[in-house]
Design a protein around this nucleic acid. Structure first.
Lengths: 345, 345
DNA sequence: TGTTAGCACTCAATGATGTCGAGTGCTAAT
DNA sequence: ATTAGCACTCGACATCATTGAGTGCTAACA
């Protein structure tokens, strides 16, 4: 069977109607909806065909039809092809003083959730190519040393360690020079035992401090790799959609959202099969995360240069307003790009 | 009327029973529960009295009784008086390498939620007495300066700023000395215009940098005051308690938990009327946050010295296992104390 | 041949009705 | 003062009929 123009019209009408109401839609409704070009009987016939073709589903005999995953997929693919010429302004997205990426991301998630009325998710940046850029030791106290490390992408880490022996200012200066000249520009993998033992030799009496520093360096960089930050917001929005908010499903979905390890999978999956413009739509079972089979997930990848990349996601009911979500996300991406490219952060 | 011994026994029995089952408890149940010292009829009479006195409530005629807020209050006050001699070990609470307070707090919240099966909340530290301890400027790039500030309590902040003019290593060293000698030991309030203009004079050509630094210092310290970090965990645990998990209530409670500004109120309130051992129990309407009228909230204040203080909270149904929660919290406090006092962080 | 009107059929949702049982309050007996 | 007994209440639950939205099929029509 062929998906002729009339079938497409009807399919679209069904999907749009269902998006509004969340209720199965019947033939008469559609007949009225499309200015009665065709009677309900005709629609019925077409709907029967559409069901056979797998685009719509009947929850039970004598109920209207609702779109199937395949139906949504068709609809979304159509939207994805549209060029969005008009750029809606999301003025609120003006990002204030960007000093701490974390804060911005959290606010962004909040904003997205509020804007779309769905749940939003945003992963903190993953840093690839982790080259060490700068190290600084400072004496904060007689027995306390402050270690500051800057990694490519201007990611800063610091920690305070206790030391036994005292170090003079001069010695500290030398150590700083030694550390920077030996380590700068290297990734963790490149900091080999050879490099280390050479440094220790040169550090002389303070080789113990070198050990401490290396620990902290390795630790600082590692931490951010293994437990990626993921922020969610607007999780409770799901209560706005009856088909998601029965106790069973709500509980499952919310707990999926609460445990970041699940979202981690999502972010990973998104990163793997990236498509051209970085935006991806998962409908129902297509989602890489199990607990979201009843939802749709729209994801986008942001890239702020310097190897700072992350993922943004919107999670809502299958009947989510794809057009709006896609537009919002596209918009956000451009804004992010603009802001961060200018700022040079 | 007097709360005689028998009434107390019966009241306790009702509360305990209700805690287990979550269902209204009737006179016969109680009669069996207390080894049939009294018949159900007697119990009925006493229950009638207890209801009149306001300790228990009948949801509807011909249902059993459930404890009222006043009833819970009585029960909790009794527990609060108990000395807890035996110290249960919560081995899992061993805190691993404590490098980032944030992470520890998050994990702590998770642990609490898992342990108690209620929702847990933990506020990041509020820093009182914000004395500046140490400043360090470093050149990361030709036009990029890294500013690291350490505040009393070893709270570290950093940021990277762009500068126009170039600064030589020597000038930077002098600036560092100037900044530290002028600012160390001062609070924000003490950094007056006088101090500032004097510094600028001495900084000579680089007075502009001084401005930048001051901005960052002020900003860094301010940020943590106005938007306090609050972590929650186990919010979905509330679905385990039918009396909280109907759609209406669950939605409200979850959204209250999601919006930190609400929790902020809680933390503030807790800080205001602190009682002797720092642990407090809010039952139902007693809670300072509106959205929690159907729950009980148990809070504790932690104090890690150096002016680092915060709040921990457990949120659960009114019939929560108060004894367990109180024990867990008390335990946690001692552990925190021990860990941080030793580590000197 | 494609479209439409009409009709019988299905089935979830709704509401009325009846039964059951847990629980109470009261009274009279102990 | 305590208890046994009894009538009464009321939510929970099951049953049943009703309703109405929706379908599929067939026959008539353009």
């Amino acid at each position: 069977m062929e998906l002729d123009e009339r079938k497409v019209t009807i399919l679209k009408a069904i999907i749009k109607n269902y998006m509004d109401t969340g209720e199965p839609v019947g033939s008469r409704t559609i007949s009225k909806y499309i200015d009665s070009k065709w009677s309900s009987a005709t629609i019925r016939n077409e709907m029967s065909d559409l069901e056979e073709m797998g685009y719509i589903i009947q929850p039970h005999t004598s109920a209207g039809r609702i779109p199937s995953d395949k139906g949504y997929r068709f609809y979304v693919d159509q939207i994805l092809q549209e060029k969005d010429s008009e750029v809606t302004e999301i003025q609120e997205l003006m990002i204030q003083r960007v000093d701490r990426l974390e804060l911005v991301l959290k606010q962004l998630a909040k904003l997205l959730a509020k804007d779309t009325n769905y749940a939003a998710l945003i992963s903190g940046p993953q840093y690839h190519r982790n080259k060490l850029k700068f190290i600084q030791l400072s004496k904060v106290d007689v027995h306390k040393l402050l270690i500051v490390t800057v990694v490519e992408g201007n990611l800063i880490k610091n920690s305070i360690v206790n030391i036994q022996e005292e170090i003079s200012d001069e010695e500290l200066l030398n150590l700083n020079i030694l550390l920077n000249s030996s380590l700068n520009g290297l990734t963790i993998e490149e900091i080999s035992l050879g490099v280390i033992s050479r440094m220790k030799e040169q550090a002389g009496p303070h080789s113990q401090v070198v050990d401490l520093v290396l620990n902290e360096v390795a630790d600082a960089i590692k931490v951010d790799e293994e437990d990626l930050q993921i922020y969610t917001s607007g999780a409770t929005n799901i209560f706005k959609y009856p088909e998601l908010s029965d106790n069973q499903k709500a509980s499952q979905l919310l707990s999926t959202l609460e445990h970041t390890e699940n979202l981690q999978e999502l972010v990973d999956a998104v990163n793997e099969n990236e498509n051209e413009n970085g935006i991806q739509v998962y409908i129902g079972d297509e989602s890489p995360v199990k607990g979201m089979a009843d939802c749709s997930v729209v994801t986008a990848n942001y890239d702020l240069g310097d190897g700072i990349r992350g993922t943004i996601g919107i999670i809502g009911p299958k009947r989510m307003d794809y057009r709006k979500v896609l537009k919002t996300l596209r918009n956000l991406m451009t804004q992010l790009d603009a802001t961060f490219k200018n700022d040079e952060r």
